Computed example of a mutant assay.
Amino acid sequence: MQERVILVVGYDGAELLDIACVTSSLDIANRIGANPPYRAVLATPGEHSITCDSGLQLHAQAALERFNAPMDTLLISGGLGHTQAAASQLLVGHVRRLATLARRVASVCTGATVLAEAGLLTNRRATTHWMYAEQLARSYPEVQVDPDPIYIRDGHIATSGGVTSALDLTLAFIEEDHGMALARGVALGVVAYLQRPGAQAQMSMFLARRSTDDLVVRRTTNHIVSHLGDDLSISALAAIAGVSERHLSRLFLTYVHEAPAQYVRRARTEAAAHLLTSTELPVAAVARRCGFGTTETLRQAFLTHYSVPPSRYRLDHQSS
């Protein structure tokens, strides 16, 4: 193979970061030794320039309707113009055609809408920006939409979440193509965290916990993340909050969209992930500090949340 052609599909209203996270990462991969090298090509209908969400213009390098060569990866960018792009029979038809020429197909952010309209996500798991997940699921009920992961691989098709998750997906592709060492080099080049697992939530609960205006929920979640090693049973939390267990559960389901016990488990798991990648504490010590009764309980939580055991998570994600 002379080169790996990555065909990036753009349109008016595309998000610049959705495109640049991919193309800049591939360029760095080439500079530090990707062999065969990548060649990123921006394709648009008619090879017309596009105006991104930010107002900046990008010049296309190829016309969708005239591109007929086999390629390594077909990637659909996202952006506020995704609904208009999905409504274009010309664009969607050529995406459907080009998908047959690609080894793998991917989307960034709301680019999943175009893939869904082309029928490429039918009966597949997929993700998109968490703000648009409900809209995608409602418009395409045949797609199994999961709003949480940073990216999802289902066969040869990958979808990623919002904006900078394009970087995580691209790093995963580089690792798949050239190995962990090159992917780590690219991550260092863009000063990025290598590498958030695809199963990690797009919106960390340490940020999400501050988004509710309900005082009881905010006070309780603040207590949880500050006292992970304490008794955080529903009865203990209800006593701290000064409400009944039933009322606290109802508040959590309303404002946090999960039961208190689920929130506690997620908080402990994310905190453990941070300790594993930022300290040299033994796994057993991490488990104790984060409120897991045993290392096996911690292991089960990681398998559920990240699809890998704690030791593997540390090996893959600890800074060198």
Rank of each mutant, 00 (worst) to 15 (best):
R196V: 12
A259V: 01
G93F: 11
A158F: 14
A183G: 13
S244I: 01
H227T: 10
L17W: 02
A34H: 09
A99S: 15
M1D: 12
S49V: 02
A29N: 10
L188Q: 13
G293D: 10
G111Y: 06
D146W: 06
T164S: 15
R66F: 08
P149C: 05
M1E: 13
H129R: 09
G185V: 02
L80W: 10
V256A: 13
G198R: 05
I28N: 06
A201C: 07
V308W: 00
Y263R: 09
L171Y: 02
V217A: 09
T44E: 07
L188H: 12
D168I: 07
L215G: 00
V217N: 04
V22I: 15
S54I: 13
P45W: 01
H178E: 12
A192N: 05
A187D: 03
G10H: 06
L315D: 14
A85M: 11
I6F: 15
V286L: 01
R312F: 00
I174M: 09
R246Y: 01
G13W: 09
L16S: 10
A158L: 15
A181Q: 10
D316N: 06
G293F: 03
T122F: 01
L26Q: 04
E245K: 14
A271D: 01
G229C: 11
I50N: 05
L275Q: 04
P309S: 02
S233V: 07
D18A: 13
A20C: 07
V95S: 10
G46N: 04
V108N: 00
L248A: 08
T23C: 12
V264W: 07
E245L: 00
V256Q: 15
L194K: 01
L315N: 09
G161D: 06
H247I: 11
G162N: 15
V186D: 05
T100I: 05
R66K: 13
